[in-house]
Design a protein around this nucleic acid. Structure first.
Lengths: 350, 350
DNA sequence: GATTTAATGGTAACCGGTGTCAAGTGATGT
DNA sequence: ACATCACTTGACACCGGTTACCATTAAATC
C-alpha cells in the first residue's frame, strides 16, 4: 500500500518520476506497465518497486490518447425495471473488474424523437469501444446500425435472437414460458388467460408465442375474452384484472407477461375476494423484487440477467479481458428458468 | 447534421483537419470549441462551418490530458433499492446533460473488507473530478476521508446532515416521519408499532427518532413488544409481522422503516386474515415501486431522490455546469413528502 | 577471444488537444 | 501620416503516455 496521502495540491507522480527513481527510461516503465516480454527480472522488479513507492497509477487519458483508443464501454438502457438494469450492470462490472475498462451508463429516452440524435452525440463525444443495448431499446435496429456506422462495437440483449450471435445475447424465454404454461395445464387448468406486453416489443411477442405454443400442444384455444393487452405497467395489470376477473366464466389461471402486471392483476383479485392461488393461479415474468414482495409470492420466470452482463462483456471486448473466461458456448443463448412459488395451484374442484 | 457515415476504417477528423480546412491555426479552433471571447464573428463562423462540414467532435481524452483534469464524475453506491439508484442517476444525468461531463457508475461491496481498497483503486485509476456517495455507504466516514485524501471532490447523500452543506445533500426524513405518525395519532391510533431499519444506518436512526418524537408529542409510549428490529429486507418485514401480529394486543398501526419491510408485514397480515387498513394501518418509507405494487397500495414517504441527484451534481461540479441552475438555497436540504394511499385508516371501533 | 545474434534500453516523434506569450491587425487619436 | 492601443491570432512547448527505430549490451557460437 503505497498510500502516503497526497494533498489536493500535490501532483500525481508520472511515468517520468518512476523512470527517474528506478534509473531507467520511461519506455522501460511503459514496458513494465504493459507487461511486455523482453525484460530482465531485475529491471522489472526495480521498476515495480519504484511504482509501488511512488504510488504511481498510469493516467488513463494519456494512455487512451497514445493508444489511439480509449477504455470505455457504454451501457445504453431505457428500462422500466431498475433491478434488471442494475443486475446487468453488475454482471458487466464483474467481467471487466480486472481489466482497464470503465463503464459509462447512459439512460436514453425511448419515446423521444431525438433519441437517435442523442445517442449519436453521446457516442461521438465519448467514443466508447463498444455499446451494450438493453431491451427494449436493444430491439431498435436503427440504434444498432448507428453503432455500426460509427465504428462502435455493439451487443444487443434480447429475449430472442435479434441479431447474429456476435451481436446478441439472448435467452430462451419462449421455451420457458411454454414450460410454465404446460405446468398449468398439467395441474388441470383449462381456461387460461393471457396478459400481453406492449405491442412492438420483441419480448412481448416471444412470451405470447411461448404461451400459445403450449396451449396448442394441449389442444386448448385462447378465447378472445381471455386475452388482455398490456404495457408492462402495474396499471395495465389492474385493467386486465378488471376485464378478466369480471367475466361470467373467468379464467382459473392467468399468465402475465411481466411481474408488475401480475401484481396488478393479483391486487384486483384480492379486491374481489378471489383467493390466490386457490381460485386463481397467476404466473409472472422477470423475477423482479416485486415477485417476492407481494402475497402470495409470485411464480415467475427468472431471466439470467447478471450472467448476460458477464457474457455481453466477454463477447463485446474479449481482447480487453483476461482470457481465463473462455467459454466454448458461443451461441450466446442463456437459460431462463421457471421459479415456482406460491401463486400457482390446481384449479378449483380438482 | 454533418452525418456522413464513417466506415470503421476511416479516422475521426482532428482539430488539425478543421484548422486546415478553415485556414486558421489549431489554437483558434480550440478557442472556438471553448467559447473564448476575443474572436471575430468571421473567424468563428468559418471555423464552425469547418467543424460542421467535417463532423468534428473533440477527443475528450486529449482534452482531459491537455486540461490536466478529466471530465468524469463517479457515482458510488451499494444500494438494496435499485430504483433509488437509477432515479438518482437520472437526476445527475439531467444536470450534466449539456456539460462535457460523463458519469461513471460503480457499485461497491459494503460488506467486503477490501471495500475501501477497491474504491481507492478505482478512484486512483479513473481520477474522477468528484464522487457521489449514495446511502448507505455515504454514511461511511472513511470513504469521505479517502476522497478528501485523494483530492477527489465528494458529496454524500443522506437522510440527515451527515457532513457540512458543501458535502452533503440531505432530506428532512425525521420531520416527515413524525408528520406521518401524527396523522396516525389523529386518526385515533394509540398502539402503534415500529419496525426498525438496520443498526448502524443513519437513515434508520432518523426514522426512529421521528417516530419517537411524534409519539412523545402525543404522550404515547412505545412498549418493547411493539418495537421490532429489521434490516430493510422483505424477510425482516415478515418476521416483524409474525412477532407484532401474534401479540394478544396487537398494534392497530405499524410504521415500517421502508417499503419492503412494510410489504412483508402486510403479507403476514393477509396470511392471518387481518384486514388492511380496516384492522391494521401500515406506513412504509421510500415510495419504491413496491409501494404501489402491493394491495392495498402503501402510504409511504417519498424521498426526492431525482432532485437530490440534480442538486448533488450542481453542488459537486458547479464550475462545469451552465450557470443557469443557480439556486439560492444552499442548505442542500430537500423535502421528503408523505404520500397517502390506501394502507391507512382509523383503528377498528372508531 | 572474435564474431554473431538476440535481448534490452534509449531517443525522438506523436496522439489531439491547451497554455503562454509574442506578433499581427485595424481602429483611434494627434 | 504616424504612433498608440486594444483585440485577434499564431507559433511552440507541453500534458503523460505510446510506438518506431536505433543503439547498446549480454549471451551464444565458432
Amino acid at each position: 500500500m503505497a498510500a502516503q496521502n497526497k494533498g489536493p495540491g500535490s501532483k500525481q507522480p508520472t511515468i517520468n518520476d518512476v523512470a527517474a527513481l528506478a534509473g531507467v527510461s520511461k519506455k522501460t516503465v511503459s514496458r513494465v506497465i504493459n507487461r511486455s516480454e523482453f525484460l530482465t527480472d531485475k529491471t522489472r522488479t526495480a521498476v515495480e518497486k519504484a511504482i509501488e513507492q511512488l504510488g504511481f497509477v498510469p493516467n488513463p487519458q494519456a494512455r487512451a490518447l497514445a493508444f489511439r483508443r480509449n477504455f470505455l464501454i457504454a451501457l445504453l438502457h431505457d428500462n422500466p425495471n431498475a433491478q434488471t438494469v442494475l443486475n446487468f450492470q453488475r454482471g458487466v462490472l464483474d467481467a471487466i473488474k480486472d481489466s482497464d475498462l470503465a463503464l459509462l451508463v447512459r439512460p436514453v429516452d425511448r419515446g423521444s424523437d431525438k433519441m437517435l440524435e442523442d445517442v449519436r452525440t453521446f457516442l461521438e463525444k465519448q467514443r466508447p469501444i463498444g455499446a451494450m443495448l438493453l431491451p427494449p431499446i436493444s430491439e431498435n435496429d436503427d440504434l444498432a446500425k448507428l453503432c455500426e456506422d460509427l465504428g462502435v462495437r455493439y451487443i444487443r440483449i434480447g429475449s430472442a435472437r435479434i441479431d447474429d450471435a456476435k451481436h446478441c445475447i439472448s435467452s430462451n424465454d419462449r421455451e420457458v414460458v411454454a414450460e410454465a404454461v404446460r405446468g398449468l395445464v398439467a395441474l388441470g387448468h383449462r381456461r387460461i388467460g393471457f396478459v400481453r406486453g406492449p405491442v412492438g416489443f420483441r419480448s412481448a411477442a416471444e412470451r405470447e408465442e411461448g404461451f400459445r405454443a403450449a396451449l396448442a400442444e394441449a389442444g386448448l384455444d385462447l378465447p378472445a375474452e381471455l386475452y388482455a393487452p398490456g404495457n408492462y405497467r402495474y396499471t395495465a395489470g389492474i385493467e386486465a384484472g378488471e376485464a378478466l376477473l369480471s367475466l361470467s366464466a373467468p379464467p382459473t389461471a392467468v399468465f402475465c407477461s411481466n411481474d408488475e402486471m401480475a401484481a396488478g392483476l393479483m391486487s384486483v383479485a384480492h379486491g374481489k375476494g378471489i383467493r390466490v392461488p386457490g381460485e386463481l393461479s397467476i404466473i409472472g415474468f422477470d423475477d423482479s423484487p416485486t415477485a417476492t414482495h407481494i402475497w402470495p409470492a409470485l411464480s415467475t420466470v427468472r431471466w439470467p440477467i447478471r450472467e448476460m452482463g458477464i457474457r455481453a462483456a466477454q463477447t463485446l471486448v474479449p481482447d480487453f479481458l483476461s482470457p481465463g473466461a473462455k467459454d466454448d458456448d458461443d451461441s450466446n443463448v442463456l437459460a431462463s428458468t421457471f421459479v415456482e412459488r406460491q401463486s400457482v395451484a390446481p384449479p378449483p374442484g380438482r
